[in-house]
């Protein structure tokens, strides 16, 4: 339903986005994933109408919206810093979109309360936004965008200002809301775990180019190139049988009967998982396994392992 055709954006000499073509399907949550400066936020700004592309067109349900100003687009954005109006209450923030469309005050109020309830903030309508915690502010920002029933919800690293636990919880909530309401979402993040866990499809970008679009499993297990293999799977290069290959830590499996033998050079305990550094033929490999599966060898001991390509 939302599609980008050959979008190019220049900032002076710099090419921020080079001939991007991308299509969102109705009701899906698509993530734009990539390191900072890859052009994912630029794409979002083009979608929201904050940025005019130097070239190319944007279509929504077949209608061209390339030059439509933001206020006329049926899109709504959840901004990275939330961008809540500090001079309004939570309720006023949420109903702002209705107010500027001339909705009567009572309707604004009622709908704001409804949406706030949906995001788990019933009773917070009269709070000043400064009084809310980070997670609550995040929910208000989400509610403010949802109240308009946008055709496409644009989310620009919405969770980046939250702590790790809250981030995990919020992304689950967002995903549930999106699924139950069937909203189409374009979601921008640089966090691969977040992208994999929340998305129907993931688009990986780098340096203004789109490299691969596919389900989380596709991009993880069948990366289109080394960049994605590295960025998504933390892959590292290994020379195997005279050939240079990128290997993910979860492909290196310690096993008593393993085909290779190396020396345990280091161990990093991560809670539920544990990572080993194994020296093998003057190369350092990384292996990751569940902590409960780990057989604890002494540091410097020789270990056997398989590589499952």
């Amino acid at each position: 339903m939302l599609s980008f055709q050959d979008i190019t954006v220049h900032y002076g000499e710099l090419v921020a986005l080079g001939s991007l073509t991308l299509e969102l399907k109705r009701g899906e949550l698509m993530t734009l994933l990539g390191p900072s400066g890859c052009g994912k936020s630029t794409t979002l700004r083009v979608a929201g109408g904050f940025l005019l592309p130097s070239k190319g067109s944007v279509f929504l349900d077949g209608q061209e919206i390339t030059n439509l100003p933001p206020e006329l687009r049926p899109t709504a954005t959840v901004f990275q810093s939330h961008a809540l109006f500090p001079h309004m209450t939570a309720g006023q923030n949420v109903s702002y979109g209705l107010k500027v469309r001339g909705a009567p005050r009572r309707k604004c109020r009622r709908e704001a309360e409804e949406v706030l309830e949906r995001v788990g903030l019933s009773g917070y309508a009269d709070k000043r936004v400064q009084e809310l915690s980070g997670g609550q502010q995040q929910r208000v920002a989400l509610a403010r965008a949802l109240i308009l029933n946008p055709s496409v919800l644009l989310m620009d690293e919405p969770l980046s200002s939250l702590d790790a636990r809250l981030r995990v919880r919020m992304r689950m909530e967002i995903r549930e809301l999106q699924r139950s309401a069937g909203i189409t979402v374009l979601y921008v993040t640089h966090d691969q775990e977040e992208a994999l866990s929340i998305s129907d499809r993931v688009s990986v970008m780098s340096k203004g180019r789109l490299f691969q679009t596919g389900s989380p499993e596709e991009v993880y297990f069948s990366p289109a190139n080394d960049f994605i293999r590295d960025f998504i799977g933390n892959a590292f290069p290994v020379v195997l049988d005279g050939q240079r290959q990128l290997v993910r830590p979860d492909q290196v499996c310690p096993a008593p009967e393993g085909a290779f033998e190396g020396r345990l050079a280091g161990r990093e305990f991560l809670g539920n998982t544990v990572e080993w550094r194994i020296e093998w033929k003057e190369q350092t490999l990384r292996a990751v396994m569940l902590s409960c599966d780990e057989a604890l060898p002494a540091p410097g001991a020789s270990v056997r392992f398989d590589i499952r390509l």
Partner: peptide
């Protein structure tokens, strides 16, 4: 005035003049 707030207002459907007046 934080430019992000103006963008948010536009995004929520306020016209530029409404944004000026309200934000």
């Amino acid at each position: 005035v934080d430019g992000a707030l103006e963008r948010a207002s536009l995004d929520l459907g306020a016209s530029p003049l409404q944004t000026l007046k309200n934000v």
